[in-house]
Amino acid sequence: MAPTHRIVRLTVNGDTRTAGVPVHYTLLETLRYAMGLTGSKQGCDKGDCGACTVLLNGEPRLSCITPVWEAEGLDVVTVEGLAGPDGALHPLQDEFDLHGAAQCGFCTPGILCSAAGLLARNPRPTREEIREALSGNLCRCTGYTKIYEAVEAAAARLGSGDAERERGERKEGVS
């Protein structure tokens, strides 16, 4: 009799976590239903919409069509792991907020992960490179322009090396 469940050990957002899951569980199902990390969204669940995008060793991947075993031994980062340990938002999250780059918000976690992967390997992307990097994430509220602008602003802030102070100033300006 083949085992129906397995114990998986994942490194998620820096923590080592263990869960018993059905053998055929995807990474997304494990994150959401075994680990309580519901930030990554279950949209189409077939790899068509990108709402489930997480970072595996820094690369954006579709967790809904990644079997959980494939993530074992890799560094998994979900939208919950983008903010700093003190809860300070990632510059991307901050700029999405400031630019109104989220409407219904369902696609946002996946887009943030795709964008974080992009900025990690290409700190000063062009608009075209941002479009390409986010081409695997659907936003059906169709707010792409604000999203691109937010990514550009986050890249500029990360590049200036003065992200903390600048965020404070811009928040004041907005309020």
Binding site: G50, E59, R61, L62, I65, S114, E132, S135
Partner: peptide, 8 residues
């Protein structure tokens, strides 16, 4: 397809 799908 897309960057994610090409990666995987």
């Amino acid at each position: 397809a897309t960057p994610q799908i090409r990666q995987q």
